[in-house]
């Protein structure tokens, strides 16, 4: 009896354990998946839906919505809206110029990657701007640029150049804000490269030196290839940083001067849908959808590259 019972339990056990193994990861994933779908996936589809309506964001007390279905009209309006194109163009400028943080961070990191007394202090000083809030960075640069009392105009005055109102001029304002954003972003890239430089193989450097490599050649052919993981992370965080530029714009120019001249899509979306004068939820959602599609291209490219790299290895 016992003899026959034993094998039975032994046979029954593996499927149960197998089932456990199949379920456990899903159980652990469940809270994350739940929140991700409620707060990310569902709102994406809601944005798609709302973008087909003309809606000021209000429901009547009985729960019925004041939204009116307008089909693709919001998208047609976007096409004819010069402010939308201004914002899109500024987004592109941000993406391109913000990447300057990567070489900037690399060179500071190379400069600081030496053993001198107190180097830790210098490193922390260079890293300091990344620690302070974007709002503070915005305020500091606003004062720096101030056309009447700002330091930049004092300096220009010393060399005999006229006062320039960087944030008040539609031609320069966006560049002024990007420069402010580069300050902390460069510090961030620097710290990424500093940790990357620690992992550089000294034997390879030694070998390269024996072969007569030095200066830029050493950097380009020996050091940089070894820093590829750091460069990749720096690229990703900088692109994300460029798309997160909302707070600096809000603090430094509030989207102005004039008609949204320093706005980016994220800011424009917020301003038409959620700000003090923004009551156009449908229009804002249409901008969100466009922004989403643009990001989708970037994310798809990113995932494809990751997939290819993993397959290659």
């Amino acid at each position: 009896m016992t003899m026959t019972a034993m094998p039975e339990t032994e046979i029954a056990a593996p499927p149960r354990r197998f089932r456990q193994q199949a379920i456990a990861p899903w159980l652990f994933l469940l809270p994350g998946l739940l929140f991700f779908s409620v707060y990310v996936i569902v709102p994406i589809f809601q944005s798609f839906q709302i973008s087909f309506y003309d809606w000021n964001g209000l429901d009547r007390p009985d729960g019925t919505s004041t939204a009116v279905y307008v089909g693709l009209e919001n998208y047609r309006d976007l096409w004819d809206d010069p402010d939308f194109w201004t914002s899109l163009r500024n987004n592109a400028i941000w993406l391109v110029l913000y990447l300057l943080a990567i070489p900037g961070g690399l060179f500071i990191a190379l400069f600081l990657n030496q053993t001198v007394t107190g180097i830790r202090l210098y490193k922390s000083l260079f890293f300091f701007p990344f620690v302070i809030s974007q709002v503070v960075v915005g305020l500091v640069f606003t004062w720096f640029y101030d056309p009447t009392f700002g330091m930049i105009n004092e300096l220009l005055g010393l060399v005999g150049l006229g006062p320039v109102n960087i944030l008040g001029d539609t031609r320069y304002a966006t560049y002024g804000i990007i420069a402010a954003g580069l300050w902390p972003q460069t510090a961030y890239c620097m710290i990424l490269y500093l940790t990357g430089l620690n992992a550089v193989d000294p034997e390879q450097i030694e070998a390269a030196r024996l072969d007569g490599a030095k200066g830029p050649k050493m950097l380009w052919y020996v050091v940089l290839p070894q820093l590829r993981p750091a460069t990749f992370i720096a690229f990703v965080v900088t692109v994300i940083g460029a798309l997160r530029s909302f707070d600096l714009i809000s603090i430094m120019t509030d989207g102005g001067p004039g008609f949204y001249s320093t706005s980016v899509l994220a800011f424009y979306m917020w301003d038409v849908a959620l700000s003090e004068f923004g009551f156009r939820m449908g229009y804002g959602s249409a901008i969100a959808v466009i922004l989403f599609l643009i990001m989708l291209i970037y994310i798809a490219g990113f995932l494809w590259k990751m997939y290819r790299d993993e397959k290659g290895v």
Binding site: P257, G258, F259, E276, F279
Partner: peptide
């Protein structure tokens, strides 16, 4: 109305500059 006020005041600022 809010939407009109926003764009009109941006226009006033542009004009003043």
């Amino acid at each position: 109305p809010a939407e009109m006020a926003q764009v009109a005041m941006q226009g006033f600022q542009t004009f003043m500059v």
